[in-house]
Computed example of a mutant assay.
Amino acid sequence: MPEISLPKDIRDDVLTVLYRHVGALPWMTMTGRMKSRYYTEWIEDPAIGGQLADYQTADNMRVWLKDGPLKEYARAIEGVGSYARYTTRRLSTPDEFLQEILGKEWQVIPDSIGEKPMHCQTTNGHTARYLCWGGQRTFKDLVWAAVNQAVRLKSRPIIVVYTLGDEVIPASQQEQQHAIAEHCGVELRYVERRWENHTPH
């Protein structure tokens, strides 16, 4: 990814406007082709590409947008990483869906949240369990992460696949995923996550 050296005020302005646009779209469930046309729009937008034009070519702007702030968007809406401060909305916290699937006595262990994929350690005061989560397109990554934990932990890891808005995971796909999870010795659960407003700062 070409690194664009920008004055802080311009970088902040560009990222704030960009994430406001992204936040108004169902970005996390859009296909690559659907996303592609927005890259062109944003490069031509005076508030985004117009401000970047003094520092980079249009081709490199596109690569920077795709491999920088837009690649990091999934982490940013979890409140993770340097781009998180620019988001206009974030996903509900893991505490919420953790208690939905395991019960109110379960909590995220402080300072245990990590990434690649998003994960944490949970406890009910007696037992600790590894939990990782992501959208349906991350299922393979979630399985690999959980299996790596399963070989060294006594408790069964949990994979959480979440949906957003009107997103639906076909029953046949869920059946296959459950079969894979069972074969690998991990638990699989599905949840619907909420969006929460966030003020960029």
Rank of each mutant, 00 (worst) to 15 (best):
I4E: 05
I4A: 06
S5W: 07
L6Q: 02
P7K: 05
K8Q: 13
L15Q: 08
L15E: 02
L18D: 05
H21Y: 15
H21M: 04
V22T: 00
G23R: 06
G23M: 07
P26T: 00
P26N: 09
W27H: 01
M28Y: 00
M30S: 03
R33E: 12
K35L: 03
S36W: 09
R37A: 08
Y39L: 15
Y39C: 02
Y39E: 08
T40E: 12
E41P: 03
I43V: 15
D45M: 09
P46F: 03
P46I: 12
A47K: 10
I48C: 07
I48V: 03
G50S: 08
L52P: 02
D54G: 10
D54N: 10
D54H: 10
Q56A: 15
Q56E: 12
Q56I: 15
N60D: 14
V63R: 04
W64I: 04
L65Q: 04
L65P: 06
D67A: 04
L70K: 09
R75W: 05
R75S: 13
R75T: 01
E78I: 00
E78V: 01
E78M: 07
S82F: 12
Y86S: 00
R90N: 14
L91M: 15
S92D: 10
S92G: 15
S92N: 14
T93Q: 05
E96C: 05
Q99V: 11
E100H: 01
I101E: 04
L102F: 12
L102H: 02
K104H: 08
W106N: 14
W106D: 06
Q107M: 12
Q107V: 13
Q107W: 04
V108K: 08
I109W: 10
I109K: 12
D111A: 15
S112F: 01
S112Y: 00
S112K: 00
K116P: 01
H119Q: 13
T122P: 00
T123S: 15
H126T: 08
R129C: 14
Y130S: 05
L131D: 03
W133F: 11
W133C: 00
F139N: 01
F139V: 03
K140E: 11
L142M: 08
V143T: 06
